[in-house]
Design a protein around this nucleic acid. Structure first.
Lengths: 258, 258
DNA sequence: GCGGTACTGTTCGAGTGTGTTCGAATTAGT
DNA sequence: ACTAATTCGAACACACTCGAACAGTACCGC
């Protein structure tokens, strides 16, 4: 494989998943850690991604509000991966599902590309990209319309209207915060609108939220905690929160990242 | 084997695999590395691939197979540029316009990123990308929803419905073929639907078509020739066609590339 | 025959990419 | 707060790749 191709592939992965680890990439491409570091450095020099300890993340251009991909997000990748893995188990061949925008759902998308006859609706360009690149003829990917946010989500009345005409088996919703009072929240008003439309369009709501989301409150509420049918989180969640959630959400799934 | 044939074969391989190594090709065609390098250089000079250390890759890894992107199309690049330049002159600050999918409209998009307060509706991910990368706060870019075609256009009922709710000053429509009998055509049934919806949503229709489109008939008609308010083409168009078009289309603009 | 042109192969010094080692820096665990 | 485990980047060695220059071959028109 050419160095150039490897770098392009790395960039794709960063864009799709929000972050990558050096060791992961080294194993995947069968090269040394040093080579991956040099690739990341080259890409970072061109401003295409941001190097952080342990790997790299997408460069978040001036989006101070969006709790963007900092070094932290690379560390949390293990948790997100575990959550995504568990969520993927809920999907069966032939299902029609929706995926919201977010790094966790992008991670989930990568684990769903092999599910036969899947229909996927999403407002996230990176998520749509994951399926598109897989190029399976038996899968249908519908991108909602709308205007683009800094995090590559499509929002606005066009997106809401497009979703309103659809009906789906299941929605996998990635959120930026969850709390007892505010429910599931996001830092973007328009994105909350779209997410609410997705919730309405889906039979079942599966929320994906690692433990760091607990206590975080974004400016805009999507739906109350109890509206989710399933909440998948990780075991970093403290006991009190776990108890509260297990009483509020019909099905609370706590995964153990390794 | 002729050098020409070898270069064509190399191009095929690059397109199919996304990238090739010099040493691989040298072994396959039983020629020296130097010869392969010279082939790659010749192809790169024509913009058909990108040379990288160790081999070559497709010029834009990610954007899929452009139809008939042969050596000929390089000459057409100047024509497309001239057409796009002329089309850009029709746009004023504050306009709300639509751009269909296609290479010519993508070219036009690049010339519109500096127009203040522009609102752009498009079903082409690459076109949306052009504006998004420019990142002007005073411009609004709306991507229609839908499923993705191999040429990165969004099509289907979702796209048609999204467009149905919008009203625009002007549509710039790139077509794959035009003929007296079939009108403006495209090779993709679903894309024709979307294009027709765009035509309905726009006050004025500006068709962009270089002279090679004349006589080409795609499987699906969009609208008759006379439906366009303006047709912009280049001076490679033969006299008979030019006469016919000038009698059919309200305004025929023939640009001169260079 | 001759000269011209296009294509190819060889040689060689410079450039580029990769893996390894190792000490410093950062992070995780208790 | 301290220690153990990762991770980082600089430096080096090695292999591969590059392009320029030169030389050889084949084909063409005259």
């Amino acid at each position: 494989m050419l160095a150039q191709q490897r770098q392009a592939a790395i960039l794709d992965r960063v864009r799709a998943a929000g972050g990558v680890r050096v060791t992961e990439l080294a194993a995947e491409f069968s090269v040394s850690d040093m080579t991956i570091r040099r690739d990341l450095e080259a890409l970072a020099d061109r401003g295409l991604l941001a190097k952080v300890h342990g790997g790299a993340t997408t460069v978040s251009p001036g989006s101070a509000h969006e709790p963007g991909f900092t070094a932290k997000s690379v560390r949390e990748r293990g948790e997100k991966a575990a959550i995504a893995m568990r969520a993927a188990a809920l999907v069966s061949p032939g299902d029609a599902i929706a995926l919201s925008a977010g790094t966790t759902t992008a991670e989930l998308a990568q684990r769903l590309v092999d599910v036969p006859a899947l229909t996927v609706v999403t407002n996230s360009i990176p998520v749509a990209d994951v399926f598109y690149r897989a190029g399976r003829a038996d899968q249908t990917v519908v991108l909602t319309g709308g205007t683009r946010t800094p995090s590559d989500a499509l929002v606005g009345p066009v997106a809401v209207a497009a979703i309103g005409a659809l009906h789906l088996d299941m929605l996998f919703l990635g959120v930026h915060g969850m709390s007892e009072r505010a429910g599931y929240t996001t830092p973007n008003l328009m994105e909350a609108d779209v997410n609410r439309a997705l919730v309405e369009a889906a039979e079942r709501l599966v929320v994906l939220a690692d433990h760091t989301k607990w206590g975080t409150v974004g400016i805009s509420s999507i739906v109350p905690l109890a509206r989710a049918h399933v909440l998948i989180t990780d075991d970093g969640l403290d006991g009190a929160a776990r108890e509260l959630l297990s009483e509020t959400v019909p099905e609370l799934v706590v995964v153990n990242p390794q």
